[in-house]
Design a protein around this nucleic acid. Structure first.
Lengths: 260, 260
DNA sequence: TATTACATATCGTAA
DNA sequence: TTACGATGTGTAATA
């Protein structure tokens, strides 16, 4: 693994290292006193101070102060980084085409500069999302109610996609709208639109309902619901079912301690 | 300024350094192979790989892979960091109370670890926001149209706050909805709601309009507008006025090159 | 402490 | 490329 570190280098030395790192598509960490200007979607400037600068091989460019999770300035992946010397100062620039954005950093008093080809082949495994909820309900439909039979997922209607379409034990059509977190009024409104879409558009399900004189039920499925959303759902004849999103990671992706 | 750096330290040495840094409320930069688990608002795991770990004195905890602007895992400011040894491994934990969240990092093969008391007393100066637009329009109302007189900002109605309320040269009431970027259909819908609120609620402005037989005009103010939003605004009788957000930084905060 | 709205939101996905 | 929605959104302002 390529790896280099320099402590308190002259700007010229640092410049050479940054050039080398950019050529080798390495990840650069720089801890230095710098001044920053940004112009693009917004406009900003940041006066002299010590910050941590991170330049990633995908073009991401981050400047972190000693507070907050978010970088004080940044550029997204695919930005083009270049560096040059301006007198005895190291200049770093990150440029983006669309939208046009330029981040310009003037550097002095470098505490250290490091570059490395980071070896990381892992992706984050997550659980607890709407997709997982959907998977769980398809697998164990009784979670919604006894006799519920899911038919289709992502059923296209005029205003979007119905998360899950199914039938209850009496043959009534059920339209499920899933939310992985607390449902708000927007979720109710969305479901209402889907119900209207279903009733106003010509489709096999609607025909069947009319022929067999069945109802169309709207169900909002979420771990919890806002008070105003509950009120609205009751007015609109929409049912709320409390379901927690699953909190288990897929087995085949469990951690193997000796992967590295 | 307190500053230390160790290259390829044993975990025990690293542990001592992290303890010291946490005590001194320093900023820690760690480049190492690690494994991460997170449980809280969601649940995630990340198998062994090299990452950059940043621990800030405000409690922020970031883990960066060599891609993307966003950290792969993190904890927000005010989280509590602790570290301990588990066999020959360095363990880092970051804990948050509300909501309850735990980030757990197992570390080995440390490339380097650095801590420093970052000297940074500057805050980012920005321009180009809705607020700046609002300020500009209040100061120079003719930008909207000749004879426009702003009356109130942030006027409360049922569905939110009207950005700017004013009158035109004929005494008609004007409701302005500002967007610092390209306006979409949502902006038009929002403005429509405000117009309805204004017409349906008992208030001094409405009374005056009725008595003097004046109109209520809705104006969407943004640098540009989406096609569908323009179409909708025309249907709804809403006017669109193109205004660029101001792009000037405050003068008294201009950069002085010898501040440091 | 909880809620709300904005952001250079970022990031994924689908058209 | 653009548009749209989800996010462990983060963050500041506000109640």
């Amino acid at each position: 693994m390529k790896y280099k570190i320099l402590e308190k280098p002259e700007c010229e030395k640092a410049y050479e290292l940054v050039e080398e790192a950019l050529r080798k598509r390495a990840t650069i960490i720089l801890f230095a006193c710098c001044r920053v200007e940004y112009e693009g979607r917004a406009l900003s400037q940041l006066n002299w101070g010590e910050r941590i600068i991170l330049i990633k091989p995908d073009g991401s460019f981050l400047i972190h102060q000693d507070k907050k999770v978010e970088p004080v300035n940044w550029q997204p992946p695919k930005s083009r980084t270049r560096c040059y010397l301006k007198g005895d100062r190291l200049m770093l620039e990150s440029h983006r085409r669309t939208p046009k954005e330029l981040l310009s950093v003037e550097v002095r008093h470098i505490q250290f500069i490091n570059y490395a080809n980071v070896e990381d082949y892992e992706e984050l495994e997550q659980a607890g999302y709407e997709k997982d909820m959907s998977d769980m309900i398809m697998k164990r439909p009784h979670i919604i109610e006894e006799g519920f039979t899911p038919k289709t997922r992502e059923y296209a209607v005029e205003h979007g996609f119905i998360d899950i379409l199914g039938k209850d034990s009496d043959g009534n059509l059920m339209i499920l709208e899933l939310k992985a977190r607390k449902a708000g009024v927007n979720a109710v409104k969305q479901l209402k639109r889907y119900l209207q879409d279903m009733e106003n558009t010509d489709n096999a399900y609607l025909k069947e309902c009319k022929v067999q004189k069945k109802k169309i039920r709207g169900l909002l499925v979420a771990p919890s619901i806002m008070d105003d959303a509950l009120e609205l759902s009751e007015e609109e004849g929409i049912e709320f079912v409390s379901v927690e999103p699953p909190r288990e990671l897929k087995r085949d992706k469990k951690i193997t301690l000796d992967a590295f």
